[in-house]
Design a protein around this nucleic acid. Structure first.
Lengths: 191, 191
DNA sequence: AGCAGACTAAAAAACAAAAATAGTCGAATA
DNA sequence: TATTCGACTATTTTTGTTTTTTAGTCTGCT
């Protein structure tokens, strides 16, 4: 097994343990045991517990990003892209044990790197949406507008959805909410 | 001084003390001292510390509600009403030391009555917005739609704004964000 | 290079003693 | 009779101390 594979397997073990107990209550020994390595070995691959956690979160973010990209690539209109983006992102957010906890948990809130990741994720999200909107503006699907500003607004609205979505487990409940949001987003309420 | 006035003055003292130290760190003695009464006197007017706090929060909510109503009453179109509603509510939210803390603080999150108030406030907010929208639909300002569902969506979007708005102290920064949100809300992004 | 066992320093948990505080009650006051 | 307060108690919080756990290091083995 090459170096990368081992690192990967450690991340995987860490992922399941973090998922079980959260960041704080997961010990390095536990992760090491799950990965069938000595604890010191973890420090050969990672500098700290935080770094391990960061790797886990990054993996999850990457996963969601891929999922979204895949879903988007199947569409052709910008309108569809936006729709699929929001649905996939809100949907995928539910699986996000660690990532979401990282954003929510008080203890973690203090950690600098979490805040950085949050911002980075937001930034990435805004960028992606911006480019979708720009595309839509170019091919006249959308009216002419400040794409970046609009993207920001959309992200804000999605944040409002995060909490209610994570409360209700059923996937069907929030579908309605998102559908409605999209309707307004596309057509507004003025006649 | 009649009973109601004393009760009111206690609430006022409590308001400033809660504002200073939050719910947990404010003592009944402190409130009593500020109100120039003995602690036991507070228990003549209120059953518990929680009840005092509840009274304070209710007062603040009432105040915001009045402010909003006053602002709305000066407008005539539904479109304006909605605009003014959202601006006033987001603006007033900033002054909301206690109420917002009540919604945010971990310790308080557990208290049942806070959750109830939150829900009640949400419900009221949705109702108000619903009726504005209905009015707009009637006089053809807005297209025909499910007013309640739309109101819910608007509230969700506002929740997304709450956090960023409360972070930045300057009133001008968030004006832009709200303006943009309103633009989308009214006209959508599709051409 | 990759790994682990023994180690340390720092943090967290457990416990106990002391202090602060929510809430009660009977008596005083006005 | 309606209000007020001082003295009291039971419960929490805080504080200080000890013990345990845990992140991270170091040395050396393979």
């Amino acid at each position: 097994m090459v170096k990368q594979n081992i690192k990967e397997s450690i991340i995987q073990s860490a992922q399941t343990t973090f998922q079980k107990h959260g960041f704080k209550k997961t010990t390095m020994d536990e992760i090491a045991y799950a990965a069938r390595k000595g604890k010191s070995t973890l420090y050969y691959y990672f500098e700290s517990k935080e770094e391990v956690f960061q790797a886990v979160v990054e993996k999850e973010v990457m996963h969601l990003r891929d999922k979204i990209q895949k879903a988007i690539s199947k569409t052709d209109s910008a309108r569809e892209k936006l729709q699929v983006y929001i649905f996939t992102r809100m949907d995928g957010f539910q699986d996000f044990g660690n990532f979401y906890d990282a954003l929510k948990d008080d203890y973690l809130a203090d950690l600098v790197f979490i805040e950085k990741m949050r911002q980075q994720y937001d930034k990435n999200e805004i960028e992606t949406i911006t480019s979708i909107i720009k595309e839509g503006v170019l091919n006249k699907e959308f009216k002419n507008m400040n794409a970046a500003l609009t993207a920001k607004t959309i992200v804000i609205a999605m944040k409002g959805l995060e909490f209610p979505v994570l409360q209700e487990k059923s996937k069907n409940v929030f579908k309605k909410e998102i559908t409605d949001l999209l309707n307004i987003l596309f057509y507004g309420i003025c006649s």
